[in-house]
Write a protein that binds this DNA or RNA. Structure first.
Length: 287
DNA sequence: AGCCAGGCCCAAC
DNA sequence: GTTGGGCATGGC
């Protein structure tokens, strides 16, 4: 394990990317760097003037895992330009979170994490997921003085009972994640590959993902956006309802109207636009 | 203390 | 197909 320095990574702000609500296993260190876990690995990332520095990584892992995970081959500058060109409101939202990148997260982890996210708040979601990992995930090793755990495998959660999960404090969601894990196992590798590979149309993937227990329209759209590479997905939660009401004058109950507007205005990048809106709205709250 | 949180399920229209 | 009540837990 060693350090890796990446110069010239554009449009990547660690705080904005890790604290925009898309991921739950990245935590800020005292020095301002972030330590995170994905794909059974733990790395630490520091912001540098023109890029980033990564600790506890191998060059092979960078190429096979992290380049894709951080979406480094996507040109966010051109996406931001395309979005701003047709709509000046989104242009202002982009200024708040111009360094957001949409991570490409693992399917099963994203599925379970966003089932847990329903009617829940981000600090508690993170706590629940850490409980799950430390109770049922494989040990990765010690890093910065703490034992680190991978996200549990589907085959492990599928065999649990709600009682086994009581210490994780999932509340009524425990039964959903057990059932969803069983459904995931029952899908089989081939079907899962079809969903994750990107060959299937968004509508069809959405319908398939919504079959999971505990997954409704909002959670499904998050899974498509944050894991299944469907950047046109537009998750609508309470924060997006608020920001759409405030910036575009929608009635907060008009979900269908918002979805239609997002598709028409933001097109294939609706999900990325959604992240800028979400982040700008939450920034405002914390001021 | 009480409202709220990256909503979903299920029964009743 | 749509609507509304119920829901575990704990952050703020």
């Amino acid at each position: 394990m060693s350090k890796l320095i990446l110069d010239e990574v554009c449009d990547f702000d660690l705080k904005q990317t890790f604290e925009c609500g898309q991921c739950f296993r990245w935590n800020k260190e005292l020095d301002g760097s972030y330590t995170g876990i994905a794909y059974g690995k733990v790395i630490n990332v520091s912001q540098r003037a023109k890029g980033m520095e990564i600790d506890n990584i191998t060059p092979l892992d960078f190429e096979s895992i992290w380049r894709n995970y951080f979406d480094l081959d996507t040109d966010y500058a051109s996406i931001k330009n395309a979005l701003s060109k047709n709509d000046e409101v989104i242009g202002r939202a982009i200024k708040h979170g111009s360094g957001i990148r949409i991570l490409r997260q693992e399917f099963f982890e994203t599925l379970i994490s966003f089932i847990i996210s329903a009617n829940n708040n981000i600090p508690r979601i993170k706590g629940c997921i850490e409980n799950l990992a430390s109770d049922f995930g494989e040990k990765i090793g010690n890093y910065k003085g703490k034992m680190r755990y991978a996200f549990p495998k589907a085959e492990v959660i599928a065999e649990l009972t709600p009682d086994d999960l009581s210490a994780c404090r999932l509340g009524y969601r425990a039964k959903y994640i057990i059932e969803a894990s069983r459904q995931y196992m029952a899908l089989g590798d081939e079907k899962i590959r079809a969903l994750t590979s990107g060959v299937t149309e968004s509508d069809e993937v959405l319908a398939e993902v919504m079959k999971f227990s505990g997954v409704g329209p909002k959670v499904a759209n998050c899974i498509l956006l944050f894991s299944l590479n469907k950047r046109d997905s537009f998750p609508i939660d309470v924060w997006i309802k608020r920001v759409m009401a405030k910036l575009y004058g929608f009635d907060e109950r008009d979900i269908a109207g918002m979805r239609q507007f997002a598709s028409k205005t933001f097109g294939e990048y609706a999900g990325i636009a959604q992240q800028y809106l979400f982040y700008s709205m939450r920034e405002e709250r914390s001021e």
